[in-house]
Design a protein around this nucleic acid. Sequence first.
RNA 1: CGAGGUGUAGCGCAGUUGGCUAGCGCGCCUGCUUUGGGAGCAGGAUGUCGGGGGUUCGAGUCCCUUCACCUCGACCA
Length: 478
Amino acid sequence: MAGKEKRVEAITAMDQDFTQWYTDVVLKSELIDYSSVKGCMILRPYGFAIWENIQKNLDQMFKDTGHENVAMPMFIPESLLQKEKDHVEGFAPEVAWVTHGGSEKLAERLCIRPTSETLFCDHYSQIIQSWRDLPKLYNQWVSVVRWEKTTRPFLRSTEFYWQEGHTAHATAQEAVEETIRMLNVYADFYRDYLAIPVVKGQKTEKEKFAGAVDTYTVEAMMHDGKALQSATSHYFGDGFAKAFEIQYSDKNNQLQYVHQTSWGLSTRSIGAIIMVHGDDSGLVLPPRIAPIQTVIVPIAAHKAGVLEKAKEMKAELAKQFRVKLDDSDKMPGWKFSEYEMKGVPLRIELGPRDLEQNQCVAVRRDNGEKIVLSLDGLTESVQTLLDEIHEGLYQRALESLNSRIYDASDWQTMSELIAEKPGFVRAMWCGDLACELMIKEELGATSRCLPFDQVKVADTCVCCGKPAVKEVIWGKAY
RNA sequence: CGAGGUGUAGCGCAGUUGGCUAGCGCGCCUGCUUUGGGAGCAGGAUGUCGGGGGUUCGAGUCCCUUCACCUCGACCA
């Protein structure tokens, strides 16, 4: 069967209406449901299981780089939030406030954290005294609240889950290294677990995080050519340290300010998985974070030996994989469609004909290929297939990304590309905010990043024609 | 926050110029038969017509108001 054939009538075709396709997929595949609170989504078991797998693997990468997990309160006193000027200005429009405890009005209202820089800073100012206390490499897995005007499941919800790392270092250099290290952790994670290639780079002044000196980003390209800022890492310098008086005595007994970073990856990454790998039949999940890596569908389960063998197979595979045996009385065809919609990477069919020949039929979700596997050495065969699926997904996504990055050296080309070709545009920039604003205003594209791998497309700014200083990747973004 | 759209059973929808007991498909429950791409038959359950107010002898239908969700823009992980 061809993998591209549309088999699930309930899902809108991607090329017909991509946003509707997305909505159909998140609901029909039971990742989320809408809740009774505007803009807030319920992460259903299947959706949360993906997040758990993301957490498990990314958390290990944090541990491997020396980080410790903590949990900060979800409330921030207004006075604390206001200590760093740029930071509060950036977040003020979208914070939710607690004004009452029971029926008592609070003396000072409490903000529900939109991010926790101020909490970490306040804490760091208490616990850091000596150079021996540094570095502090903290992370937390929590939800945050931002009062968004337009919300979409995973991509922008009022409350969302994420991790936020917050570190304090003795020197600026150490903090810069940490910022880049964690950006690379994100890029590696996207490649090795989500099978998504990203473009690494730096945000412009306009796009950087409120209160940061520098913001770095990994940008992924969705199926429709739009960009998704997929994780960010910030270098703060000593700006927060000065605002919060986070000082330590160095080896010469001199008081010094710490240098800080923060970095985050959210449930938005699940949106990236959906929009990078999904197809007209629904989700396509990368094997390493798929809640169900392999589903076993017995055929004619009432016939002698079929169900017994299927159970035996499940027990064996479960030692190494997340495996499900669907022995419900639904029709096999129904099950095929159901698990395709839910993006299960590999399906194994086992029927009477297979039993006779000591084999089963495996079907890949990524390309629809059917493969006859011997029941001997099945664990190894499945492992190989899952790895191939991961690699196949990554290569397909990489090809999709690379084939849709265009160069523009003049305004005319740039405007045509942005208007007509979904994807990213590489173009030179003089560094002026005015040009960045003009491009957004006139063309609807924003600067995604100043990529680390700079390509000199031209000598002059694509907008104003003055000498260019940097190559920028432009695109329409979620 | 601006423009547009939609709210009727779990889901998708129909419901005429206001008129009788609010329907249909799917799903769900029970039983039997089926099983290699969304099975068949028989029986069964399910409604605050988004909420509130009004007009009327009578409102799912008309009016006012409010809430939610979706799409597109302006602002943001």
